[in-house]
Every structure is written in C-alpha cells, then in structure tokens.
C-alpha cells in the first residue's frame, strides 16, 4: 500500500475528520529535508511491499523509515541519503523485517490537490491523495517544482544510472520484527476503571502488534484487560497515541487516522515522542510499555 501524505489536516476534528498525515512524522520530515523540501511537502508513504515507481525525468529523491528494502535499477540503495536517478529508472520496494513504514520524498515535492488544507490521503472520506485514494497501478504524479533548489551537482551517476550522496542523515535505529521494543506510556484517562490485575499487566507483561495494524490503529495481542465494573462511557474526544480497550478486553493504540471521538475506556496514552517508534513496529513485534 502506498499513499500520499503530509503533516496532516488540522482544524476539522470537530467535524469528525481525522488529522491523518504520516504515521512516522520524523521519518517523513527527514525524507523531505534530505531533498531540500519543506517539512509540509507531500510525499509517498509505503508499507508492506509491492510498490514500483518509474522515474520519467531525472530527479533527486530520498527514502527514509523502514519496512522495505529499496532496489533502484536492480541495485540495493541505502536509506537516508540523497539519490539522483536518471530518466527511466525504476524504484522497487521489497519486504524487510526492520521497520514498517517507508517514506519517499522527491526534490521539488509532489504536486497534489489539497482537500481541507492537506494532501494526506484519508480513504474513508475520499480526502487528499490521488482522487481521495491510495495510489493505484498506472497513477502518475508530477512534481510541484520541477527545478528544485538543491545542490546535487556533486553526485556522480554510476553505470546503473544513479548516484548517491556521500553524506547520510543520522536517524534513530528502527526495530526488527523479532525485537522487544520498549514504549513509554502515560496512564490513560480511565486508568482507575480497570482491575488492578489489568493495570499491572499493562506495564508488566508483553504485548504483540497484531495483524490488525493499520493507519487507524494498532490492535495488540496479550493480556485481556478487564474493567472493575461494566459501565458504558460517554463518548469523548480521542486522538493519536490513545490506547482504547474494547469490550472484549483488547487494547488498540490509535494511530494517524484515529477517529476523533471514542467511547471505549482508555488505559494508556503513548508518550508523544515514542509514537513514531511505535509506528515502525510491524505486526509480530513484541512491545513492553514502560510507565512514565
């Protein structure tokens, strides 16, 4: 799956419209900065494998984040570097056990149409992206500025039709699917509604990111979390990083396309700076929540 994203859509949550935007904001910003773009510029977010991109005019791009191995004209290319590829080059993304979401930024930024101030794709309401949808086969995207203001004269093109910058952007190490990842977490607004056995399990046992992990939320497998009494909550605002617990006792961490209002009790709230790290934990990754 590959969709156009930016830093999200603000000011419309009171109408039920999620913020959306890149799952890993830091990786998205890094990709744009490497290309000399603005942080707000639209770029591609790719997850799992299958994305293949044909570059029609010589361009400079970068790939950051994880979840993919990037192949350019048959050669593996590094992440977090400036890459210049000649017209006719093909970028292919293959699966990788490290990380979950990859970001592809192109110098000059992607030319997109804005819906409610953002080009972030939100499929459910057909907002942003390419006609409100993730990218499909044969979609064509132009650059906003085809003559980007970027220094890449020193990149030498090799026999495979591309060149790589000497410098590399320093980025955090991304988790491998077999890692045990520590994520810092605050107690949630309804912490006190849960049984002590459940609150203790939240910070002391290991949870696994389930296969139900997407832009809306990551469902977790592990201890079943029980409330002290069956009491329905009155729906109130929720956002990215909130951990809701369903009536079946399953925790769900809300992610970039988080609904704006929720009615489930909230056992936790992910430490803001760790949301990007959590976004890079693919299904199967073990998580230990650490109290702060």
């Amino acid at each position: 799956m590959c969709s156009i994203q930016d830093l999200g859509r603000r000011g419309f949550q009171q109408y039920g419209i999620p913020i959306s935007g890149a799952m890993d904001m830091q990786a998205a910003k890094t990709a744009n900065r490497i290309c000399g773009n603005e942080d707000e510029d639209a770029l591609l977010e790719c997850t799992l494998h299958g994305t293949e991109i044909l570059i029609q005019d010589t361009t400079v791009f970068s790939i950051t984040g994880g979840g993919s191995t990037a192949i350019l004209n048959g050669q593996k290319i590094p992440f977090n570097k400036q890459i210049k590829a000649i017209a006719g080059s093909i970028i292919k993304l293959l699966p990788s056990p490290i990380g979950f979401y990859a970001y592809l930024a192109f110098a000059g930024g992607l030319k997109t149409s804005l819906d409610l101030g953002s080009s972030s794709t939100y499929n459910l309401a057909a907002l942003g992206g390419k006609n409100g949808k993730p990218l499909e086969q044969n979609d064509r995207i132009e650059l906003k500025n085809s003559k980007p203001n970027i220094q890449h004269a020193n990149i030498v093109i090799n026999e495979h039709g591309f060149g790589i910058s000497n410098w590399k952007s320093t980025v955090p190490q991304l988790p491998h699917v077999n890692d045990l990842v520590e994520i810092k977490c605050h107690k949630g607004p309804e912490w006190d509604l849960f049984e002590e056995r459940s609150t203790s399990a939240w910070f002391n046992s290991i949870f696994i990111i389930s296969q139900h992990a997407n832009r809306m939320g990551f469902q977790l497998e592990g201890a079943q979390l029980e409330k002290k009494e069956k009491k329905e909550m009155i729906s109130t605002a929720v956002t990215k990083g909130i951990v809701q617990v369903t009536n079946h006792g399953t925790p769900i961490v809300l992610m970039a396309d988080a609904q704006t209002i929720g009615g489930y009790p909230r056992i936790g709230r992910i430490f803001n700076d760790d949301i990007n790290l959590l976004a890079q934990c693919r299904p199967g990754t073990k998580i230990k929540f650490v109290s702060i």
């Binding site: 603000r10 000011g11 419309f12 949550q13 009171q14 009155i234 729906s235 109130t236 605002a237 704006t260 209002i261």
Partner: peptide
C-alpha cells in the same frame, strides 16, 4: 489549533 466538542466535554 482546534476544539472538539463531545456530549459533556470539550477538548
């Protein structure tokens, strides 16, 4: 940035 009203709360 923005407000989100709900039944009995404002965020």
């Amino acid at each position: 940035i923005e407000c989100v009203p709900a039944y009995s709360s404002l965020t």
